[in-house]
Design a protein around this nucleic acid. Sequence first.
DNA 1: TCCTTCTATGCAACTCGTTGCATAGACAAG
DNA 2: CTTGTCTATGCAACGAGTTGCATAGAAGGA
Lengths: 190, 190
Amino acid sequence: MALEHAILVSLLEKPGSGYELARRFERSIGYFWTASHQQIYRVLGRMEADGRLVVREVEQQGRPDKKEYSVAGPGRGALADWLHKPIEPESLRHDLAVKIRGAAFDDPAALIREVERHRQAHRDRLAHYLAGEARDFTGPEAPAPPDAGQELQHVVLRGGIAYERMTIAWLDDVLDTLHRLTGRAPGPAV
Amino acid sequence: MALEHAILVSLLEKPGSGYELARRFERSIGYFWTASHQQIYRVLGRMEADGRLVVREVEQQGRPDKKEYSVAGPGRGALADWLHKPIEPESLRHDLAVKIRGAAFDDPAALIREVERHRQAHRDRLAHYLAGEARDFTGPEAPAPPDAGQELQHVVLRGGIAYERMTIAWLDDVLDTLHRLTGRAPGPAV
DNA sequence: TCCTTCTATGCAACTCGTTGCATAGACAAG
DNA sequence: CTTGTCTATGCAACGAGTTGCATAGAAGGA
């Protein structure tokens, strides 16, 4: 149930509504965890019922009212418990790799466009991460000296950057392989 | 439902029982997709009911009988459909990153052991992958020249190797950061 | 006026994935 | 002869995650 913990961390960094959390999960938190708004609202409701969060109705001008959540004592305790408990090193779930291996039973050439599309998506993400890094950590606007929270956010972001760079390089390798196979043996190869 | 497709690919590479598939998902297929035996048996049953797989009872000596599954025409068609349909670039789900960011609200030093443990697990996986690569692709026993299927399996494995190397380097970065924070500001830092 | 977009919250139904448990044949060690 | 291990299959219950739909206030444009 790591979504709960990701929400606790995000709300400790800054209280917010379900809608705001959903947007954070599209950017900074989204570097390492994703969630849809339906999931977030459901979990927020449960955590509030369990006493891990407190909610405050906030009236707004020019917008619908919102419910701002923040972390209660038991929520902080639950997060601390989880932080002190070992977790299993996660395993990959990589659809594209399944496709690549499946291409042996279809037309490898047909996969080239798909791989190029993914490569572009990763290039876009990398650019986005680098822009965020410059804005928040390495640029002239960045706070100096950073506190522990910022150091930790930065090292997580560096992980995202390393991941995207590695993935782009690997997709280049995949494209080379597909071109080689296509040149050598056009059409289905089984 | 990529598990279905991963099973189809694996059974096209070589027919097998649920038990055998579960073991493959602990090794070669497991480089990029994981599944427990319960999940596999359930999906195998459904796919057989849907006519995507055919099953054959095989009597064995010195072992319980097994059910050997292989891919039927409709299964191959379903795989081809999926291969030709674009998929979304996957997003990460990285528990450890949640913990690292959460450490700002706890004791960063307490995380060092956990990160070291993960680092060791990734080193072990890397060694395992490299051994597999030498055995199947780059060593003297490897088939030469490889066919398309082997080329594609190899490039996927190279992706796993690149991922592990990247992750180990990143975890070193994380450890440096945690040591720096611990030396500078022992105890909780919020 | 209607349409769209953005903010904001939520339900219902379904599939996917995990956890715990159960069964059972074959074989080896003690 | 019991215990443990490996092979082999499976159910039941639950929690996690996705998809589709619904509602509603505020703002801006056609």
